[in-house]
Design a protein around this nucleic acid. Sequence first.
DNA 1: CGAAAAAATGGTAGCGCTACCTTTTGGGCG
DNA 2: CGCCCAAAAGGTAGCGCTACCATTTTTTCG
Lengths: 343, 343
Amino acid sequence: MERKRAKSGEIRLTEVAKLAGVSPITASRFFRNPQALSLSKRERVASAAKELGYVPNLAARALASQRTEVIGVLIPSLTNNVFSDVLRGIYDASEGSRYSIQLANTRYSILQEEKLLRLFQAQKPAGLIVTGIDQTAESRSVMEAMNCPIAQIMEIGPDPVDMMVGFSHYDAAFAAVSHLIAQGFRRIGFLGAQMDPRVQRRLQGYRDAMKAASLFDPRTIVTTPIPTTVTLGGTLLADLLSRTPDVEAVICVNDDLALGVLFECQRRHISVPDDMAIVGFNDLDFMASAVPSLTSVRTNRYEMGRRAVTMVTAAIDGNCPPEPVVDLGFELMIRQSSSARGV
Amino acid sequence: MERKRAKSGEIRLTEVAKLAGVSPITASRFFRNPQALSLSKRERVASAAKELGYVPNLAARALASQRTEVIGVLIPSLTNNVFSDVLRGIYDASEGSRYSIQLANTRYSILQEEKLLRLFQAQKPAGLIVTGIDQTAESRSVMEAMNCPIAQIMEIGPDPVDMMVGFSHYDAAFAAVSHLIAQGFRRIGFLGAQMDPRVQRRLQGYRDAMKAASLFDPRTIVTTPIPTTVTLGGTLLADLLSRTPDVEAVICVNDDLALGVLFECQRRHISVPDDMAIVGFNDLDFMASAVPSLTSVRTNRYEMGRRAVTMVTAAIDGNCPPEPVVDLGFELMIRQSSSARGV
DNA sequence: CGAAAAAATGGTAGCGCTACCTTTTGGGCG
DNA sequence: CGCCCAAAAGGTAGCGCTACCATTTTTTCG
């Protein structure tokens, strides 16, 4: 009776194998590739496992096999609606696979992202999903060292680490601004918060569209690094109006700001869209039911998450997608809030 | 040259120890409890690890030590704003600790929850956070078998598995309805979606408050199991009005519905609050900036998540909280949408 | 019907780390 | 100056599983 070390006390594979009358390795195979066993043994192991209430030890499995069935996901925020849609796609897709998701929050910091990537490295994930394309050089080298399929999501750009699923924020903003210009608006403001790289690219789209129409005026850009809220939309509109009271339309970097702008207009008795047109971004559910209904740029965030998982899992199984960069595009949802001037 | 098995190729602790000129176990201690080493060895190991770019193998660590530094979290939805606030609290608190979070989504299904609990069991988490108090008997027995601190969050009730952090949904709804009654409203409707157990308890609070004032009428209750959206709020109001056109006020089980109701009232030119008072639940940011501003029940969701983590981590370290059930309460935020009748 | 091929099963030896115990070192003190 | 005790460091032996091969059984087919 001189046990050197306390066993965990849980049922081990060996016990299951013993009860089933097979070798441990056969029992092991049952859990990984049941059809490799003869039917009789398969049943014997299954019933033995059930009888003993066997729960495999994932740490031992990972150590022995040198791999895990975890896909790491790095996103900048849990509060932002945008990411909850992406996450829903990710979790939905992962449930159809044998992989589980390990989520981490970078809080919009590329340094935090770097730290979290190192943490993931210690877990040897089978795949990785990261947000955006603006990783540090150090982060990129950690990702390359991890030697697993990686999908960058939310936007597309040149030079993918491995794979990409997203759309062009620049093009989307350009299209939205062009729509306002086509509707006859001239003084078009830009309201931005949480100026992450994707929002910056939307701003660039706005700039270029305005310049192309010779309407650009830097005074009509109001941005802040603080996180987005509906209330903030009102504040930013107030700022904009105090600077340039003659603006006729605003494009907001997201729908929360757009809703805040609508409320602020109502408070100030500014008629939408006659005195102020509004365009949002993301097309959250409430944009269609607001009064007046609000124009927005619809993006397929759920599909982005779903596709990222299917691409990564396919790549793990050796089926790299033929095209590593997938553009999911966007759709401008034109509603009452951006009706043509004087209509 | 007859290696039986491929090594991972990564730097191992042994290599670090060799370079530092210490034994492996000393190097191991460096990563777990640095102050147990003399200063000179501490520095030697640190620089050796850095030089080699050592990344510890978590699977090996977990297997050898029979424990992990993972806290499992089970929530019903990623889309619902309510849970993103809780999650933010959870992730924020976990960053100050040595634990990492493993998140899983039950999709409001207690059977899915049971499955996920078994999955967690295989990972031997150091702690667990689960949503609500309505687990199946089987889930409860799995939780008890896991032998780790467990916090149930979002609500409180009798018979905790281990610990609880939440508030009484019944009391909150009762208070909200009582407020409307005190303001002079008599025909008060109830709009509910995604009728999870917590929402059911809010409905019970509504029922009892209405009965206590002899105002209860089952026809003014409109509920649906489908997930909440702003648009749905409008639909539910339409249903309610078609049944009982004389309602003067509605209490909505969440703020999205309340916003949808406001928009629907605007579409129908029903004046809020003169012809229709509105009360929501959760007090999301937009409730204060809506026009008119919307009354809601504020709950401290962020703190709920944060506290759950601190309670669980304290319990892991042997510091069980003196009181296992924490009631974070709620606050009725009274705004324009529920102003007294005729005021 | 027997040899070859294929399928099913088993034995052995780790995966990289830490628990447990033993040994060494350092320094305070009679 | 040696003794004792605490602190620091090391040796050994697994944690529970699976990779890698070897072996046995079954199937196929000339």
